[in-house]
Amino acid sequence: MHHRSLPAQVAGLVVWMAATLLAGGIGAIASVDAASFYASLNQPAWAPPASVFGPVWTALYVLMGVGAWLVWREPASRERTPALAVFVVQLAVNALWSWLFFAWHQGAWAFADVLLLLVLIAVLIGLFRRVRPLAAALLVPYLVWVGFASALTWAIWHANPGAL
């Protein structure tokens, strides 16, 4: 049994989901013209259509929010606090990518950002695993997608030297 009351747990879920979706929203603001910009770029044959990104990211943000909430629900510990701190940092790095790539057209910085994000997610999975293994498992699709996004960022950046 968890030490928080049911209303506190529901409130916690709302807060963690809101924080996670807020990060997604901040990135989405930078992506207002993303579909047209993305379509104008030279892309590898394996690049997904722009319509794939919204649903995939929405699902990943929900998994992230639930994962953070599961960790937050656990009793305070030396493992929980750094895990949640890294979670918040990776949310900021995640949101920054859209600004670097779509709003500011900074391919090199976007690639550096996505690599940092990949490392932070791997670290986060390890930290979450120590607190709540299910929370870590919920982040595996995120790790896989960001690995794919890293390769895609690299490929698009290099195929569009004048645009990024």
Rank of each mutant, 00 (worst) to 15 (best):
R80T: 00
L13H: 00
H2I: 11
A35N: 14
V119A: 15
P44Q: 05
F148M: 05
R130W: 03
P133Q: 04
Q43C: 02
Q90L: 05
A103H: 10
L164Y: 15
T153C: 14
M64W: 06
A137M: 03
N160D: 11
M1P: 11
M17S: 08
S51A: 14
A19T: 11
A92M: 01
I29C: 08
V56C: 06
A95H: 03
A45S: 14
A39E: 15
A136K: 02
L118H: 09
A137P: 00
Y38R: 09
W57G: 10
P141K: 00
P48V: 10
L117R: 03
L139P: 07
W57I: 11
F128R: 03
P44D: 04
W109Y: 15
V140D: 09
V140F: 05
S5Q: 03
V32G: 12
A155E: 02
H3F: 04
A110C: 12
A23T: 06
L124I: 00
W99H: 15
V14D: 01
H3T: 14
G12P: 13
R129C: 00
M1Y: 05
A50V: 11
S150E: 03
P44K: 03
W145Y: 08
Y142Q: 01
S77Q: 05
I125C: 07
A59C: 07
P161D: 09
G24E: 09
